[in-house]
């Protein structure tokens, strides 16, 4: 099954989903498509004005363009999702997840989709890591 992971760039989540036999829907898939696109003429930019328009499918026009641009990347992944794993309270340096409104909208869109979802807290010690992996394992095995 295709499992959307949140934060979508997490290596740990991506690895665990693959380890337990499912396909992770990670951000790299969307970015890879963009950076390898020959039409991209401004190299450091991953998001173009087309993405901002695509983002309208996921957020209203009043929503800032930066949020819509980000949702244009997360949105197609959420559309494909058959299940989701959401990790809350992750450290602020955890990847490019610094836009709070995008994060809120992403979680909202996953919940609106009503797919099986597992919500966890980011682990900080060994006991929490055991719990973290046990819950992910149980959830993913239950999807089969």
């Amino acid at each position: 099954m295709k499992v959307f992971i949140y934060p979508p760039n997490s290596m740990i989540l991506q690895d665990l989903v693959e380890r337990f036999g499912h396909t992770p829907l990670a951000l790299a898939k969307e970015i890879e498509r963009r950076v390898n696109d020959p039409e991209l003429d401004s190299p450091p930019m991953n998001i173009t004005e087309i993405d901002v328009k695509v983002g309208l499918k996921y957020a209203a026009i009043e929503v800032p363009s930066g949020v819509r641009g980000r949702l244009a990347m997360f949105g197609p992944l959420i559309d494909e999702a058959e299940a989701a794993i959401i990790v809350n309270n992750f450290p602020s340096t955890f990847g490019c997840m610094a836009c709070a409104r995008t994060n809120e909208l992403t979680i909202y869109l996953i919940k609106q989709k009503r797919v099986p979802t597992l919500e966890l807290d980011y682990p900080t010690n060994e006991e929490e890591v055991e719990d973290f992996i046990a819950r992910i394992k149980g959830f993913l095995e239950g999807l089969k």
Partner: peptide, 24 residues
């Protein structure tokens, strides 16, 4: 991001190797 997750890898690696899957 890599730095942040790298700190957690030894713990995850141990748990996976020893198969200690306990929920709290």
């Amino acid at each position: 991001f890599l730095l942040e997750e790298y700190k957690l890898l030894p713990l995850i690696s141990n748990v996976l190797k020893e198969g200690r899957f306990k929920t709290i």
